[in-house]
C-alpha cells in the first residue's frame, strides 16, 4: 500500500514537471516574482572588474553534485563565468568535492568558450581543497585573506564553515552574496552578508539568470506541488476534525 502511494506520487510529480516543461517550451511565459539578490549578483561581477580584483565563488561544504542547490549553483556559476570572461576578471573556485571540481571545470570552460575567451581559462583556479570540513574552511579562508577578492559568492549547501568564510570576507571588505538551503547557516548569512538568497530562492534565481527552460519549469512545477501539499493538509485537517475515525491522511 505504502509503495503504491509513493509510485503514484512519483507519477503525479513527473506529470506536473513534464507538463510545465512542455508549456514553457511552447512559449508559455512563467513570471517569476522579484528576488532581491538577482540584481546584486550581476553588480558584484562588475564591481570586481572595476576594482581589478578577483571573484571568489564556492559551493560550500555540505553539497554533492546531486543536490538541487549544487546544480542551481552550477547554473549561476556558468553565468558568472561568462561575465568574468568578458571583463577579464579572475575567477577562483575552491571546493571540497572532487566531483564538483570536475563538473565546475567543465561548466566554466564552456562559459569561457561561449564568449570566445577559451585561452583565458585556467583550470587550476578551480580546485579541490580537502574533503574535511575545516581543512576546506581553512583553505578558503586563507585564499580570501590573501587574494582579497572584490566579490564573494557563497552559493550552495553550507555547514558550519559558513561564518568563517563570511567573516573573513567581511574583514577584507568584499561584497558578499550568499544563497543556501542549509537553514542553520541562513541566520549567519543574513547577518554577515550583503545579500542572501533563502533556500529555493537560489533555485529560482538560477532559472532566471541562466534562462534555462527546464529549471524554470521545475520552479513552476514546485509551485503547483506546493498547492497540492496545502490542499492535502486542508482536507486532512477537515476530515480529522469532523471524522476523527478517518485515517487516510496517515501516509
Amino acid at each position: 500500500m505504502d509503495s503504491l502511494i509513493t509510485i503514484l506520487a512519483t507519477i503525479v510529480a513527473g506529470l506536473v514537471t513534464f507538463w510545465t516543461a512542455r508549456l514553457i517550451h511552447r512559449g508559455r511565459k512563467y513570471h517569476l516574482r522579484e528576488i532581491a539578490g538577482i540584481k546584486a549578483l550581476e553588480d558584484a561581477v562588475g564591481r570586481a572588474a572595476e576594482m581589478g580584483r578577483p571573484i571568489l565563488y564556492t559551493p560550500g561544504y555540505g553539497g554533492d553534485i546531486q543536490r538541487p542547490t549544487t546544480i542551481a549553483s552550477m547554473n549561476i556559476l556558468s553565468v558568472v563565468a561568462e561575465k568574468t570572461a568578458e571583463y577579464n576578471c579572475e575567477l577562483i573556485y575552491p571546493t571540497h568535492d572532487p566531483i564538483i571540481m570536475a563538473t565546475a571545470q567543465e561548466v566554466v570552460r564552456e562559459s569561457y568558450s561561449r564568449v570566445g575567451k577559451i585561452d583565458r581559462f585556467n583550470p587550476d583556479n578551480i580546485y579541490y581543497v580537502s574533503s574535511s570540513q575545516f581543512g576546506y574552511a581553512a583553505g578558503v579562508e586563507g585564499e580570501i585573506v590573501r587574494k582579497k577578492p572584490a566579490s564573494i559568492f557563497l552559493l550552495g549547501t553550507f555547514e558550519a564553515e559558513s561564518l568563517i568564510l563570511a567573516e573573513s570576507g567581511a574583514a577584507v571588505g568584499a561584497v558578499q552574496i550568499a544563497g543556501t538551503d542549509s537553514t542553520i547557516q541562513l541566520a549567519f548569512f543574513l547577518i554577515a552578508c550583503d545579500y542572501t538568497l533563502f533556500g529555493e530562492e537560489l533555485f529560482a534565481a538560477s532559472g532566471y539568470l541562466s534562462g534555462n527552460e527546464a529549471t524554470l519549469a521545475s520552479v513552476w512545477a514546485q509551485d503547483i506541488m506546493r498547492i497540492l501539499c496545502v490542499s492535502f493538509v486542508a482536507l486532512g485537517i477537515l476530515s480529522a476534525l469532523f471524522f476523527p475515525e478517518s485515517s487516510w491522511w496517515k501516509l
Binding site: A13, D181, S218
Partner: peptide, 14 residues
C-alpha cells in the same frame, strides 16, 4: 518539504 520537492523534480530531470 520545499527541499524535498526540489529534490524530487531534480531527480526526475536527472
Amino acid at each position: 518539504i520545499g527541499i524535498g520537492l526540489g529534490s524530487v523534480t531534480t531527480s526526475l530531470r536527472v
